[in-house]
């Protein structure tokens, strides 16, 4: 008679192998920059943090997408109600108008979100831990800038693609629509870049001068909200070239004028602005001044920063 087969007991042993020196790759400054960028993107979108940190960024993204959906629905409804040819005559808002219409949402999103990348690091002293690693102050601030810039570009492109989908699906002849309007795609992709660069730079510059995110946000929102009615009123009152220049100080319109240059037509927002009559070179130069100037100040502020 065969005995029962012997069942071997499986034994587990826990070894404490103690401290192990790291012998893997060290990727230096490039990895450091990449990590700060990735961390910045995650922070901007609330990833890896509590639910509360996700509310604001995704609320803004939701609003921006909602505007695009409404624009697509209106266009689709007009096509069906009055026919494609007559709908074209209505000159309904489209890709060229989107950034202008949603510009205030972009500015508020940047004003609220961008300071989160700089203020807590200085308030909580974490900046000291970055600067003692293979990363300079310039690396740090450029990586933070690039992180928020990428978020802004993605946030700008997303509703434009949704609008494109909506317009395509709403049109009775989607292929014809695409053939007639395909140039809008590279235009809205390109126009997002000055919008993102401008809002990111101004928002981070404000954040560079305070450790409190709320102060930076309130200052920026106030700046955008106040300059718009002030410059609009004053420009129309004075008129002429002086009025045009005053209109140029409408800070929320600066990247929208560049959008107009890219699309070759003024948007519904800038159509009545005296500054829209300025030459394209002046409008682009003015945008560069208002972006590169603050970027330089931001860089100077962080270049020599030490713990």
């Amino acid at each position: 008679m065969m005995g029962r087969p012997e069942v071997k007991k499986r034994e587990g042993t826990v070894f404490d192998i103690g401290y192990q020196n790291y012998t893997g790759p060290r990727e230096g400054r490039g990895r450091a920059r990449l990590s700060v960028i990735r961390n910045g993107v995650r922070t901007s979108l609330g990833f890896g943090r509590g639910a509360l940190a996700k509310v604001l960024p995704w609320l803004f993204i939701g609003v921006l997408v909602f505007i695009a959906i409404i624009m697509a629905l209106v266009a689709g409804a007009a096509d069906r109600l009055v026919g494609p040819e007559d709908a074209d005559q209505l000159n309904l808002p489209s890709h060229s108008d989107y950034y202008g219409i949603a510009s205030i949402i972009f500015f508020v999103f940047a004003a609220v979100g961008a300071p989160d990348l700089l203020c807590p690091d200085r308030r909580e002293g974490t900046i000291n831990l970055y600067l003692v690693r293979p990363l300079t102050g310039s690396d740090y601030v450029f990586s933070r800038w690039l992180a928020f810039f990428l978020v802004m570009v993605a946030v700008a492109w997303l509703p434009q693609f949704i609008l494109l989908m909506g317009l395509l699906m709403g049109d009775p002849r989607p292929v014809n629509y695409l053939l007639e309007n395909w140039l809008d795609i590279p235009r809205f992709l390109l126009a997002a870049i000055p919008l993102a660069a401008y809002t990111t730079t101004l928002a981070l510059l404000a954040a560079a001068f305070t450790t409190r995110r709320a102060y930076a946000a309130v200052f920026l929102v106030g700046l955008f909200v106040i300059t718009t009615p002030f410059t609009t009123g004053l420009a129309s009152e004075i008129g002429g070239t002086a009025g045009q220049w005053i209109s140029m100080f409408n800070l929320s319109n600066i990247p929208v004028h560049v959008n107009d240059v890219i699309f070759g037509e003024p948007s519904v927002i800038t159509r009545s602005a005296p500054a829209a009559e300025m030459s394209s070179w002046i409008l682009v130069g003015w945008f560069l001044l208002w972006t590169l100037g603050p970027a330089g100040v931001l860089w100077m502020r962080y270049r020599r920063l030490t713990p």
């Binding site: 990895r31 974490t126 970055y130």
Partner: peptide, 27 residues
Amino acid sequence: PEHDCLPTNVAATEFLAHMAEVSGLPP
């Protein structure tokens, strides 16, 4: 450092992994 330098709303493991990356280690 002597003074406070830790972010308050991040888990220690996530923070340390980020700091290791900033020192050049792959993720």
